Amino acid sequence: MAEVKISAEIRTEFGKGVARRTRVAGKVPAVIYGHGADTVHVTLPGHELMMALKTANALISLDVEGRSELVIPKAVQRNAIKGHIEHVDLLAVKRGEKVTVEVAVHTEGDLAPGANLLENVLTTLTVEAEATHIPEAVTVSIEGLDAGASLLAKDVTLPSGTTLVTDEDAVVIQVLAAQAEEPAGDEAEAAEGSEG
């Protein structure tokens, strides 16, 4: 995963009015915490942050007044109506350090022939990985699975250096049999008419 470089400014004023002015100026209030250090309040450029957060578990290299800080997003608050970012909590990490994150589960392949339904019971898995090698997602094959089949968390192949935190017996994917539909009234009448 590539590092995204963003410049941050130290924030010394707080409150709703200040946060509102910060957002109007195209910036996002954020806090950096971790490693037992004091929490650092910063503002980040909104567009650059939005682009960085398009990648799940983005690794961000912050330039905080000439000092480089490696962080990953832990909590992102978005406006419920407009969807823009209102605040971000960032966790400071070090190279080589293991972190616990959630990664998306993607599926590939086709189910067995027939009208089966795929249910994604878990859309993410919690894993532990080295901070600079966090997988963006994990992929599971559903090729040829038939009704009644399921894949457990322990069945998912994880990238090297990544360990599963989610309960290994948790169901990730299951295949359900589709319910047979009743024929429509016109079709049933047409079938009866052709018999006579």
Rank of each mutant, 00 (worst) to 15 (best):
L151N: 08
D110Q: 06
N116Q: 07
V171T: 15
E102T: 13
A137K: 13
T107M: 06
V165H: 05
L118A: 11
G144S: 08
Q174K: 15
L145S: 07
T166D: 01
E182W: 01
G161T: 08
N116W: 06
K154I: 05
A129V: 08
A112H: 13
D167K: 08
A92F: 01
E119Y: 00
D110G: 00
T166M: 01
A178Q: 14
N120V: 05
P135C: 12
L122F: 08
E119L: 04
L117W: 04
A178H: 09
E143P: 13
I134D: 00
V165W: 06
D186Q: 06
V105K: 04
E119I: 05
T100D: 05
V103S: 07
T157G: 01
E86M: 14
E119H: 07
V140C: 08
T162I: 05
V138D: 08
L125M: 14
E128P: 01
E168D: 13
G144N: 10
K98M: 02
V127A: 10
L117N: 06
L164P: 02
Q179V: 10
A112V: 05
V101C: 10
L125H: 09
V140D: 08
E102K: 15
L118I: 11
G114F: 13
E97V: 00
E181A: 09
L152A: 15
K98D: 00
A147P: 07
Q179T: 09
